[in-house]
Amino acid sequence: MIRYIIKRIILMVPAIIATSFIIYFAMNMTGGDPALTLAPENATEQQIEEIREELGLNDPIYVRYGKYMLGMLKGDLGTSYVTKRDVFKTFMERLPNTIELAFTAVLIATLIAVPLGIYTAIHQNTWKDTGGMVFALFGVSMPNFWLGLMLIIIFSLNLKWLPSGGKEGIRSLILPALTVGMGFAALITRTTRSAMLDVIRQDYMTTARAKGASEKTVIFQHGLKNALIPIITVIGMQLSNALTGSVLAETVFSWPGVGRLIVDSISKRDTPMVTGAIIMSCVLMCVVNLVIDLIYAFFDPRIKAQYSRKG
């Protein structure tokens, strides 16, 4: 098992190198000449050349990429063109906000969606099922940022219960987390329902009933435990998506997270910031995916056995 984890961590390295390669080249080949963007309006050719020299822009791109990767090993992702601040530090400042929003949203989504998914599966083809599925259908059909706007109109403009944006204390977290969470909840409900429907028809469910187990035990002990893998997969996917920043919710609620950092930096043509932030997001995503794969092993002995063999 430990060997499996180590192997997975080693395998992450080429993935990160490949991703950073694509992103670095894409950002630096097409982004235009940053020296021109940075130079003051009436700068002379001389001054622009000095800026180029200072940023190391005169080196061939593969040399610059090499230097960039060496810096990355030391936690140095360069300096923002716009704020002149360290990219890594800026990212790390924003990250806790994104993590806070992501985890709260996923938690809300899970608490709503998993019970709802189980409930609809048990009552398949009744009006209860239809009701739950209509809720989920609306959830996946709704643009997330629009839901955010609606929540602002209802809860902060009309009822004046909650702030409409910014980040001050727990109250400002509720609306953005609900916004992000509802979109996730819809997906998780659908996945839970179909996973449970698969499981409900299995023979071992009849075995459990024939033992004299109550319906509750049968559904939760035997059913849910077997349906967990697809449910964990979809929850994990939502989490890793949310960790790269829920760009839209962060924009609607002026939430100072990673997603907005990337979008803002793109609009300001802040190449080092965009490159660094996206690469960091990818690293983060790799880690989350690994953790999810390890959680599988915890719930399913067959997967655990598979890991040990591969280990």
Partner: peptide, 13 residues
């Protein structure tokens, strides 16, 4: 690689 990055992010870039 493309599948693991949220599509909004890809599109934004």
């Amino acid at each position: 690689v493309f599948y693991s990055i949220p599509n909004i992010m890809i599109a934004v870039v």
